[in-house]
Amino acid sequence: MGLVGIATEKILSSFSVFLFLTILLLAVARRISTSVLLFGLQSAIIAAEVFATAFQEKLPEAYIVGALVFAIKVVAIPRAFFLLVKRLKTVRDVKASTTPTQSVFIAAAIIYLSYAAVHSYGGAVHVPDDPLAAAIALILTGAFLMVSRKKALMQMLGLLVLENGIFLAALITTFGMPLVIEIGIFFDILMGLLLMGIFTFRISDTFEHLDVSKLRKLRG
């Protein structure tokens, strides 16, 4: 139980609070770049969490996963996003359909709901409440971002937040899935983002905006 051990303890006990913080901040973020930064931060916290778990549970595979998380979600994806924002020359506003105040309240409600959900569903899982609530809150926040932010980029970001939540849930309940599967999932996420990037280019080429709520030609 050296210094690393203490750090591990701290990370495991307090990271959920940081995650809640990122959630609240994501809700009020007005600029895409801010949101991307927050996402990077969030991913970094999760990566730390992965490393801590790997250390504590002595899972060598998990180090690889942690490294992947760090490389992809903390480094690669935010960079790619910044690149996209730059190349698309879009207005950097997230175009929320809710005001920041409403968003914060909704985020708070989400956090509350997550706890409530954990209390009613989580009985079977025997894991600490906070991390699980954080995971669920992340999923819900991702969903909320996707529904309320009109920019295509923000939808991608919401999806990533949602995915973070799922990943976190898997991590804290089962200490992660088998390595091959994890790698596959990461590959999928990367490819998915690549494709979505292609499509955002196409959208901005074809429609000259990135507001997905205006893509309403196909309906009925």
């Binding site: 529904v147 309320s148 709520s213 309403r216 030609k217 309906r219």
Partner: peptide, 24 residues
């Protein structure tokens, strides 16, 4: 029913979430 198919992707996503929530 056709009006429910609004064309707005955010609404579509909402449907999925609602379906999930109601099932839960």
């Amino acid at each position: 029913v056709r009006r429910l198919q609004t064309g707005n992707i955010q609404v579509y996503l909402l449907y999925i979430f609602l379906a999930l929530v109601s099932l839960l």
